[in-house]
Amino acid sequence: MHILRCGDAATFAPLDSFRMTSGEAIPTKAQIDEALELASERLVVAGSDAALAAVMTRLMRTERLGTEVAFVRATASPVTNAYDLPHGEAAAELAATGTARQAVLIRDESGQAIVGQALWTGPEQGPLEGQVYADSEHVFTGKVPFVELLPSLEGPGVRVASGKKHGLRRRREWFDGRAVQLGTAGAIVVRDGVPAKRPVKRSSVYRHTEPMHLVRP
Rank of each mutant, 00 (worst) to 15 (best):
H2Y: 11
H2R: 12
D8R: 06
A9Q: 04
P14H: 12
F18A: 10
I26M: 10
A30D: 08
E34K: 11
A35P: 03
E41Q: 04
R42Y: 08
V44Y: 11
S48N: 09
A50M: 09
V55F: 04
R58P: 09
L59G: 11
M60Y: 15
G66C: 11
V69Q: 02
T75P: 00
D84L: 12
H87D: 13
G88F: 12
G98R: 15
T99K: 07
A100M: 10
Q102W: 13
A103L: 00
V104D: 03
R107I: 15
D108G: 07
I114G: 11
L128H: 01
Q131T: 15
Y133P: 00
V139E: 01
F140M: 13
T141L: 02
K143P: 00
F146R: 15
L150T: 07
S152D: 09
G155S: 07
G157D: 02
V158S: 03
R159W: 06
R159F: 06
S162C: 01
H166G: 03
L168P: 00
R171N: 06
V180Q: 03
T184N: 00
A185E: 13
I188G: 02
V190K: 08
V190L: 10
K201R: 13
S203P: 04
H208S: 10
H208N: 11
M212F: 13
M212D: 05
